[in-house]
Amino acid sequence: MEHWIEWVVAFFLLLGGSFVLIGSIGLTRMPDFFMRLHGPTKATTLGMGGILLGSIFFFYTHGETSVHELLITIFLLITAPISAHMLIKTALHYKLKTIDKTTGKENIHAAQQKQHDRKPLP
């Protein structure tokens, strides 16, 4: 393997690993659910992008170019916002408590009211 490609792979792997770790620290340390949602949905997705980019470079130098990594990256980038949306709707449904410093609480109440008024499907 060429020397500089090895450095590029190591850089992307370390970047991705640190972002994944930062996302999980955010999940553990943040005070309420609406803050906790930020860590995994943003930092972890970016970290997965870094790791998969490193993997693409690694296998490119081994002469086995495959589109699987790109497929996984695109799939994760598409599905992370959808699962975050479903989770925040569940949190609104459960009327989770917020701490005083959380911003946008009036939006939370408006969305809760809107969701509460929704009629059941026939």
Binding site: F33, L37, T44
Partner: peptide
């Protein structure tokens, strides 16, 4: 419960 689902997702 949403916290646990979020942890599983991560």
């Amino acid at each position: 419960i949403p916290d646990r689902i979020l942890a599983l997702d991560t």
